[in-house]
Design a protein around this nucleic acid. Structure first.
Lengths: 150, 150
DNA sequence: TTACATGCAAACTGTTTGCAAATAT
DNA sequence: ATATTTGCAAACAGTTTGCATGTAA
């Protein structure tokens, strides 16, 4: 007898569902079905970079009906709650990153694809002084890539 | 007797106008009035970071009527022609930077303001290897700032 | 005189929002 | 029972585009 599939048709075990529920509650969010589904898609398999549209399609692909507006709202709530962070590399699309550790990015421009770079793989040895009256919020290194011309 | 004001009411000298004209022609662009006006606003006073809307307002402020669409088109043409480059730091607004040298940016988030950082003020000592099949297009360092909490 | 640039308004993209119905606690 | 969340559709911001008119070469 296998685990009940509680959430949509996506085959979440009770343990997974409960863990995700705790995570949402810890972040101050109610555990609604759309949030559990999206959280599962986001957090179940390692770090991800996701746009609203892509996540929306993934939800539908696993047979869960969520509105696009809810995907947007949920991503923003997760962001505000500290479960996600934004990455700004493209003025068309907004990316959300599940990796909350200090890190940087490759951005493959013609594929609109992000790849994480561990913080300790980059050495920003010296930084200029910030203008008076301002604090550093974060230091981002973005390495823009294109397909190699062979 | 002072120099004739050839372009709108913005008091371009003949020398300035001719220099800007050359610059546009060298970039493969016809020297139209809107382009000369916008080029003057962009290039006359050192390096700038500008949005389409801001440049549009500046043009109107100096009494030149240019359509917003033309400002957008012109900025994109200048970009394609290598007279400007884009800076992506905010998914709402698109910034254009007149500084074509290798450099980085402070971005003051709550003021939507960019400040240049000379390339040699930052020491990116070690970079990770790019994924196979991709070439580095550029390495951007963005230091996000907020007003200091005193 | 011919190709290119402009202005306008309409289209378009990604995202947000107002509100009634549904759901979590 | 009450506050929160959802879905839908409409609104919205920034940007792009089609087309008739105007302009540079």
């Amino acid at each position: 007898m296998r685990d009940a599939q509680h959430i949509g048709g996506i085959g979440l075990t009770q343990a997974q569902e409960s863990a995700l529920g705790n995570r949402l509650r810890a972040a101050g969010l109610r555990t609604t079905r759309p949030r559990l589904v999206l959280a599962h898609l986001l957090f179940a398999n390692g770090n991800r970079h996701v746009t609203a549209e892509k996540l929306f399609e993934e939800a539908r692909a696993v047979g869960v009906s969520v509105s696009l507006a809810t995907v947007y709202n949920t991503l923003n709530q997760f962001c505000d709650a500290g479960l996600l962070r934004e990455v700004i590399v493209d003025h068309a699309r907004n990316y959300f990153d599940t990796n909350l550790h200090d890190h940087h990015h490759f951005y493959i421009e013609n594929e609109a694809r992000l790849i994480d770079i561990d913080a300790d793989a980059v050495d920003v040895a010296r930084l200029p002084q910030s203008p008076d009256g301002y604090d550093v919020d974060m230091v981002e290194v973005i390495i823009r890539l294109n397909k190699a011309t062979e």
